[in-house]
Design a protein around this nucleic acid. Structure first.
Lengths: 148, 148
DNA sequence: GCATGATGATTCGATAATCTGACCATCGTC
DNA sequence: GACGATGGTCAGATTATCGAATCATCATGC
């Protein structure tokens, strides 16, 4: 897992880290700028995966943390109004996590920045190359994302 | 930053998350398997960047944590024998972090698994496609990695 | 040479995040 | 209806993380 200074070519996994982390940082900066400065990085990693109605277990699995940790983070997100929990009509055990009012505003900001950063990357790579990258990452996802 | 369930195409940053995290998980599993079960994920993220002699500040910047946090993690790594700190001959303020004996064994294991996973990915993508992916990620790194 | 700001690192204290283990309620199945 | 599986929570301990302050050394300008 270590890369010596003499290492010329990092492994593909690490190579993926740079864009991932760069995007994340850009979004977090934009959120702080927009006044959403109470959301933490760990919280955002769960929040990012909240859909129309997500189960805690799924959020945990996708964010690669335990369900206890995910529960802890959702508690915070809920207290801050970013998400809300509603009972799952299909399963009395479960509660569905969905966006709260404040959360929708966050998504709007995030989407904007994401599109902006993608444009920057596209300019750097070239349009067809960017499309290729997206396609290849999509293919790679098939064997690296256990969840869908 | 959020991806609804209806979202078909995640942004490029998130798309990079899957391989990154998958590789990380595979390496961590292999390390635990090999008896290095006391190294934590956070520690590994700093350890991974230790070269022949790395400054704490650089490690912190690359791992995207504060220098205090990096210092804390290096303390643990050092106590476990994974790294050691030596004075920097060129700067009396600094100490260089380098691999300890145990750390070299870890690197050996990590490298092996990394190569193995990369082969798997290459099989899935196809050899020329994998090369393209590597090239594009390398290009993207130019604008997403502030450190080299 | 020597002030002065910058840099590398550490200490301190507070808070956030994370895991294990245990537990409870509900679901599905047989 | 019993029984293993699943979704969540609670409790506790440990780890990670940050901000603020401090200290020593470096580098620059004079």
């Amino acid at each position: 897992m270590a890369e010596g200074t003499s290492e010329q070519q990092p492994n593909l996994g690490l190579l993926c880290f740079f864009p991932y982390r760069a995007m994340e940082a850009r979004v977090m900066d934009a959120l702080a700028e927009a006044g959403f400065d109470d959301i933490t990085l760990a919280q955002s990693r769960v929040f990012q995966r909240v859909g129309d109605g997500s189960r805690l277990t799924d959020l945990a699995a996708q964010a690669r943390v335990t369900k206890q940790t995910a529960g802890f983070l959702v508690d915070r997100l809920e207290a801050a109004g970013y998400v809300e929990r509603v009972p799952d009509p299909a399963d009395a055990r479960a509660r569905l996590v969905r966006l709260g009012e404040r959360g929708q505003a966050v998504v709007a900001v995030a989407r904007t920045v994401e599109a902006q950063v993608e444009q920057e990357w596209e300019r750097h790579l070239g349009r067809p190359e960017a499309a290729t990258l997206r396609r290849l990452l999509g293919t790679l996802r098939e064997v690296t994302d256990p969840f869908r």
